[in-house]
Amino acid sequence: MVQTVAWITSLVFMLLITFIFLCVAMKSTEKRDYEPIKKKWYKARTFYGVTLVVFMLIITIYTLRELPYDQPVYGKGEDPTIVDVEALQFGWELSQSEFKVGEAIEFHVTSQDVNHGFGLYDEEMNIIAQTQAMPEYTNVVYLTFTEPGTYEVLCLEYCGLAHHAMTYQITVTN
């Protein structure tokens, strides 16, 4: 799951940074000449800098291969189900709310009034996809459910005093 990967990755790097700052703090009261330290650690920095840039480049290329904005390639004769989603203070209107596992779906999301956020939650209440619901514009979410169950739409953009009450249920069957 993406959230778990993000959390673990963040945790690892945050702990690494904590460890490095602690080490330097422990070594701070010892007194040595600055020049040799500079010489040594500037050299190390070149290596560290290059490694970091290369690492980021690899992650960038890897994570940009498939973006949620891209329409999936549909098989021959496979027509996606288009669902019109309209948000309004404070509720959701979907042209359809029951789906089948494996059905290719496009949610065409817009809003009647202010900005809202169309956030799709699975049964364990993890976000699986989202997009902004904007007045005058239509954002698209491409999705194929892989598990049956009851899914929920939650509002993910602050839209006023009943923002937290904007929920809607979707049923997915086999």
Binding site: A6, I17, T18, L64, L67, N126, A129, L156
Partner: peptide
């Protein structure tokens, strides 16, 4: 002063992670 640089540096990590489009897709506005 030293603490603040630590705070800035660790704070960069979750920021960068969330700026990744595929991550943002499930973490934006959480």
């Amino acid at each position: 002063a030293f603490l603040s640089m630590f705070g800035w540096t660790v704070g960069v990590v979750p920021a960068i992670i969330d700026a990744t489009i595929v991550v943002n897709h499930v973490m934006h506005n959480t």
